[in-house]
Each structure stands twice: as structure tokens, then as C-alpha cells.
Design a protein around this nucleic acid. Structure first.
Lengths: 150, 150
DNA sequence: AGTCTACTTGCGACAAATCGCAGTAATCCC
DNA sequence: GGGATTACTGCGATTTGTCGCAAGTAGACT
């Protein structure tokens, strides 16, 4: 249960949100899902904790938790659906191979350097610390030359 | 009508897809939408061209067009919905300010440098040439110090 | 602790998106 | 060009996500 470490009470209050049993249940569900989770999975896990929690409540809670910075979203495989993930101490990014589908985590350090450059160029302070990059992994590059079309 | 420039026939065939009137209609709709478009808008535009095109056909066509590399997806404002955009000759990225909501385009050049570094570090060949970065723009940084919570 | 206010929840209705299936048509091959 | 093959479309049914509203409850203040 990761979320005991991050004080969700403070995070919610800081954003003007109330702490309700339902929101804690949903937060817990996202934690227990581990890694990326689809809404359906979160709904199911949430109902293990609260048998009668409503679907709309789960969706609304997710929205609140994301805004409070407790949960992250990431685009799913197809780029159409949305995945949810509990926030971690160390920011990280994802690298998905479009050929074999495998996913690698990219530590925040390499990304931080890149962000620094971008911040210098644009003047923005970048906060989106959870990118989903896509590419072709070394193994797949080696084994196939016929996938390159574009 | 941008898509006459990119030979969609070849792109579709290269990925093993057939070229159907419906898919051309949808591709055309995405073009005419210009910039980011929500599915509802695309559906409406598609029906201008083909009065009886089915909703599921539009969704399935979008999926195919994305896989064929003719259309790009981007996460919408909330991070939950998906926007579609016609592919362009010059890759570009988006920078959205989380405070004022404004969007800036980031030219491909700065990003290319960013990608180069990442490719060196990871060994991946990066293809996701359409990132949606979020941050706080210079103006909003100047005017507010009370938004920083985390 | 009790009361008040306004944010939240659950519900029902609605809209958006997905899925399986039977008929149709794009492509291949001759 | 004609026929066979198999992907694609449209349809209906289902699932998923959203919205408005009345009842409930967290948080603030006394």
C-alpha cells in the first residue's frame, strides 16, 4: 500500500478537495493495480473495498486524484484509451517498442537533462513528468528491416 | 485537402490494409478538421462526405489510419480524451501551459536534438514524433507563485 | 459536540465507444 | 476481365464514460 507514504490528505486539501472514503478507496485501488491500470480494472478493485461505489464516483475520483498530483495518466497502447498509475517518488518515463510491444522505464535523470535543455529554449517550466515515448527497441531494429514504411 | 500529397494508398497497402471509400472519407475528414479534432467532429465531417457512414466504421478507420502512420493522436486537455490530427511533413510537438491553457508548437529541430540524446542512451530508434508536453509558460510563472503545491 | 455550508455521492438517463456477426466488396491470381 | 479469398462495413446489442439533480456528509466555526 504505497499511498501511506504520500500524504494524500495534505495533497487533497492543498487543492481544495475533501478527503472522502470513496477517494481513498479509489487511490488504494490504483495502488494495488500496480503499474498502468485501465479504468475497468480500477473500478473492479475499488469495488472490492467498497461494494457499492458508483462508476461515476470512480471516474470523478480519478479526475480529482490526477489534479491533486497523486495519480498519473498515460496514453494506452492504441493511443486512444487512458491508463492510470500511482505517482512515484522518483519521476520516470516510459519507452514502448512499437514492434514487440515491450515497455521500458526511463529513469528521471536522463529525462531531467533533456528537460533542462528544453526549458532553456522555451522558457517553460516543464511539469509533465510522465511521458510515453514510442520507438523501436534495439532487438527489433536488429531483426527486422521490413517494418520501416512511413 | 492535404492528403493528396501523402500517398495514402501506398501507406495503407504497406501495412496490409485495404483502401476503401470509407477510409478515404475519414482521412479527408481529419484533414478538413485541421489541427486537433475530437472524434465527434470527425464523425460529423465524415458524414458530410458519406451520409450513411457508421460510427464504428469511423472509429475503426481512425485506428487503421493511425497504425498506417497517416494520422496522429494526442491526449486532450483533461488527459482522458483523445484528439486526432493529420500527419504533417515536418514533425512537431506541443507544449501546453497548465495554468493558462495556451498551446505552443515546438518545432521538430529542438525535439530532434532531444531525441538524439535519448537514442544514444537507450539504443531505441524513436518514432513517436508527436509529444504533448505540459508545463508553465513564462508569463504564468511570472504572475503566480501560489500554484506550486506538490 | 452541534450546526451550517457547500462539496460529493449515488442514481437515472444519456451519449460515446466497442464488439460479434452476417453480408459486402477490395485485392489477388489466373 | 472473372472468380475466389478474406478483410471490411453496417447493424444491433453491449459496455464504457458523462451529466444533472436531490440527498448525504466532510470541514469550518461556534
Amino acid at each position: 500500500m504505497t499511498h501511506h507514504r504520500l500524504n494524500y490528505v495534505e495533497a487533497l486539501h492543498a487543492h481544495g478537495y475533501r478527503v472522502t472514503p470513496q477517494r481513498v478507496t479509489v487511490l488504494d485501488a490504483v495502488c494495488r493495480a500496480g503499474g498502468h491500470a485501465r479504468p475497468a480494472q480500477i473500478l473492479a478493485l475499488a469495488r472490492e473495498g467498497d461494494l457499492h461505489i458508483d462508476r461515476s464516483t470512480v471516474y470523478r475520483s480519478l479526475e480529482v486524484l490526477v489534479k491533486a498530483g497523486l495519480v498519473l495518466t498515460a496514453p494506452g497502447e492504441s493511443g486512444i484509451d487512458t491508463l492510470y498509475e500511482i505517482v512515484q517518488e522518483t519521476p520516470h518515463h516510459h519507452l514502448r517498442c512499437t514492434v514487440c510491444g515491450r515497455e521500458t522505464e526511463l529513469d528521471g535523470e536522463s529525462a531531467a537533462r533533456l528537460f533542462e535543455n528544453l526549458e532553456r529554449e522555451t522558457g517553460y517550466r516543464l511539469t509533465g513528468d510522465h511521458l510515453m515515448l514510442t520507438g523501436v527497441c534495439p532487438e527489433c531494429q536488429a531483426s527486422s528491416n521490413n517494418q520501416v514504411v512511413e
